[in-house]
Amino acid sequence: MKAPVRARAERQEKFEVNGDPAKLDAMYARFLGRSGPKMLSDETKWLAVTHKSFDHARRGFNDRMAFLGRQIVELQTSLGLLNNVDANGYMSNSQDAYGRQPFHHPSIENVEVLNGGGKQFFLHHKQISGVAARYGLPEVVRWQPKDVHDLPGSGCDMVYAQALYAIVGALALEQGGQVANKIARERILQPVGLRTGSLEGSPAEQAISS
């Protein structure tokens, strides 16, 4: 609910956001491909790019979709690292203080890569924000920065990364997990440098599915 007259003066300088559906569709086409604008309903397309700071969250916001999308991207990152022959550089090099040797087996050798900094590197919000910028997401995200003259200081990287995750979550809800997983691998993780390849039928994929 909104009062007809403000009791206090507006403290924040107004931040202009996109209201053009054609511009929004152009971003989805860059991110999802030529048929991207048709993969989500109109309401969902706007909701996925709406942060809770926009219009005091009166028009809905993307937190829940972003949470689902992040889980999907994190899972695909883990699977990608487990199946990446070049992932040894992300192995944890910590040594046991007492010189003890952990149990080793070929089938679980690559699991150690998940203890390193690989996931944190690929999923850092600045990395994901950089990918979002490639697709023009910053031009269509609806939010209200704390300082319109200092977007980085207002947390724009977190906002853009959240919107990208929200689109993945929206795809999972309306198009299914297979489509969302494919987009996460090909349109988010590969651009940040994780060569995931095809994970269908891989040992890690089968282990998750079983």
Rank of each mutant, 00 (worst) to 15 (best):
V168D: 13
A170L: 07
Q178G: 04
A180Y: 06
Q175W: 08
C156T: 14
V168C: 14
N181H: 03
M158L: 13
V179C: 00
E174A: 13
I167E: 09
A184F: 01
N181S: 12
Q175N: 13
Y160C: 08
A170Y: 09
L171I: 11
Y160W: 15
Q162A: 08
G169S: 08
E174M: 10
I167Y: 06
L164S: 08
A166Y: 10
E174P: 08
Q178A: 09
A170W: 10
V179H: 01
V159H: 01
I183H: 03
M158D: 13
G155W: 12
A163V: 05
K182D: 05
I167P: 07
A172W: 02
L173D: 05
L173I: 11
A161M: 09
Q178P: 01
M158G: 11
Q162G: 12
C156D: 15
A184K: 01
A161D: 12
V179A: 04
V168P: 10
A163S: 15
G176C: 02
A161K: 12
A172D: 15
R185Y: 03
Q175I: 04
V159S: 00
Q178C: 08
A180S: 03
A180H: 04
L164C: 09
K182L: 00
R185T: 05
V168H: 02
R185E: 00
Y165M: 14
Q162F: 02
Q162V: 09
L171K: 05
V179R: 01
K182I: 00
K182Q: 06
V159Q: 07
K182T: 05
A184G: 03
L164N: 11
Y165C: 12
A163G: 12
R185C: 02
A170I: 04
Y160N: 06
A161G: 09
C156M: 14
V159K: 00
L173N: 10
A161Q: 11
A184N: 02
D157E: 15
A172S: 15
V159R: 03
L164D: 14
A180D: 03
A166I: 09
A180N: 04
N181V: 02
A180R: 08
A180L: 03
A161E: 09
A166C: 06
I183Q: 01
R185H: 05
A170E: 00
I183M: 01
G169T: 07
L171Q: 05
Q162L: 11
A172P: 09
Q162P: 07
A166Q: 07
G169H: 06
I167K: 04
Q178S: 11
L171P: 04
K182H: 12
C156R: 15
C156A: 14
A170T: 01
A166V: 13
L171E: 10
Q162H: 09
A172R: 01
Y165N: 10
A172E: 15
Y160I: 13
I167D: 13
G177Y: 01
L173F: 04
L171Y: 05
